[in-house]
Design a protein around this nucleic acid. Sequence first.
DNA 1: AAAGAGTCCAACCGCCCCCAG
DNA 2: TCTGGGGGCGGTTGGACTCTT
Length: 254
Amino acid sequence: MGTSWGFIEEVGWRKGPWTSDEDRLLIEYVKLHGEGRWNSVARLTGLRRNGKSCRLRWVNYLRPDLKRGQITAHEERIILELHARWGNRWSTIARSLPGRTDNEIKNYWRTHFKKKIKNSSDNAEKSRARLWKRQQFQQQQQQQQINNQINNEIDIKKVMSLPTMPQAKQEMTILYPNNTIEQQDQVGFFYSSMLNNSTSISQSEPSSSNEDIMWDELWNLDDFYGHFMINTTTYNKTNTTPCLQPMATTPAFY
DNA sequence: AAAGAGTCCAACCGCCCCCAG
DNA sequence: TCTGGGGGCGGTTGGACTCTT
């Protein structure tokens, strides 16, 4: 065993992958003394691992009640809902998923979330194009009205400007009529700010700084959408899917 | 078939908080 | 009040595995 490449010593503690013998010693220790007092493991078993490493190994790998295998769709939904409620409190989330560890959930979230963000950024581009067309249509209509009814005092600049909060709200009301007034307010505000940002991005050549802004938005959106989902799932108990479907500019988390 | 790229995940680190003594 | 141990968390690493070219 000592010949393993993982055998790195530093101040006497072993690091790297655990061997089956080490696992056996740790399991025996827990059988005899129970969980906890991890710093005593080395002294009582001869295991050359520090307490923290022992605890981590037990909690994340050796515990008999751990569930193996892929995260199911049901579990994924629970993770998403609980993350919406608790944020990155992985241990809190893990408590609601028997057999799953906080580390496992964290890893799952990071890898799968990243992947979905990546996919959704493509969708976001298409969505922005759709929104732009809709926006143009609205502007045309407004322009027509203005030409027909409103006198010269109307400031044309205002019409040509980006959607304001009420406009965004109106869009969301059409798209998602089930949402409450507060939800429409929230979405409208966010939607409006996203559109502002995306337009500024589309007007120039893609640069690293713009990309950073986009990614920041997407990360912020995680919190926003998470917060939002709590409300929608609460309001719409009979419906298994939240009444707010992923917004036009929202990454497709589902 | 092979090489390189991408993904997954166990394990580690550093920092922080909590709590008992 | 201080201290040390236990535990939680975010970020990261690196090996194994899978996919793509």
